[in-house]
């Protein structure tokens, strides 16, 4: 195996060396510099959607998403410059105005860190959807969806190769959807649970957890399960 080339760069005034092929996010993490992320997850491919991880690279016209920007020799990077902070705060404020992120402690912490005002955008269009409770394993509440695409990636090429989930709509009104909005049991879904595992909010939630939060007791949930199974048998 050939040795990878070593690159020197400067992050927040600190000189560092990283092997070729390292992203700016990884380089910053070596230095214990915290860069916030929203759409990134270790189990799914980085795709640069949320732009929360942007950093300022000297000489570049626009900010660079650190999750997919590779380190280059001589780069000078700032991870918390005024431009960066303004973008991060505004993205959080705009996201908060559209989606219910109250069940995501990580996003709440980011709101606090960047002093994002939850009421910054009064009168904004909320992405509100009916809760979809169409299978015994998980519940979908897309009012909490932040369109990170992780579930679609987990369902597809990144983990399960099941392709039950995709994207519908466009722009702000994009949403995660099945083929012609069919209920989950009528799709290719194998109920592996990977989508639920990678969801950063409670847009996808384990059904037992969901019912417990609704105040049901364990024995009530079990009774409900039995009923569902019997219902299914009598139907078939």
């Amino acid at each position: 195996m050939t040795e990878k080339k070593c690159l020197s760069l400067n992050i927040n005034g600190i000189e560092c060396q990283v092997p070729e092929g390292t992203t700016l996010l990884e380089a910053a993490r070596y230095l214990d510099i915290d860069i916030p992320v929203i759409c990134l997850h270790e189990a799914t491919t980085a795709k640069g959607l949320c732009r929360q991880c942007v950093v300022e690279v000297e000489g570049r016209r626009t900010l660079a998403p650190s999750c997919i920007t590779l380190a280059e020799e001589g780069m000078v990077v700032f991870t918390e410059s005024e431009r960066v902070v303004r973008v991060r705060r505004t993205i959080l404020e705009m996201l908060h105005a559209s989606s219910d992120i109250s069940h995501s402690p990580a996003l709440q912490a980011q709101m606090e860190k960047y002093t994002a005002d939850p009421e910054r955008f009064p009168g904004a269009k909320k992405r509100q959807y009916e809760i979809l409770d169409d299978n015994p394993f998980y519940v979908r509440d897309y009012s909490q969806c932040i369109l990170c695409w992780r579930c679609v990636q987990a369902c597809g090429d990144d983990i399960q190769f099941t392709y039950a989930l995709g994207l519908g709509g466009r722009g702000h009104d994009s949403r995660i959807s099945t083929f012609y909005e069919l209920p989950m049991p009528e799709t290719t879904c194998v109920f592996c649970g990977n989508c639920v595992a990678v969801c950063p909010t409670e847009a996808l939630q384990d059904k037992t957890e969901y019912l417990l939060e609704k105040g049901l007791q364990h024995h009530e949930i079990r009774a409900r399960r039995r009923q569902e199974r019997q219902g299914k048998r009598s139907k078939s």
């Binding site: 732009r51 973008v87 105005a97 904004a124 369109l147 722009g171």
Partner: peptide, 25 residues
């Protein structure tokens, strides 16, 4: 722009909508 944003990245997906709302007002 709100209609034509593809919705992939957050700044444009959310920003074009918020911009349209303010210009509406």
């Amino acid at each position: 722009f709100a209609h034509e944003s593809c919705g992939k990245c957050y700044p444009c997906q959310l920003g074009t909508q918020r911009q349209a709302e303010i210009l509406d007002r």
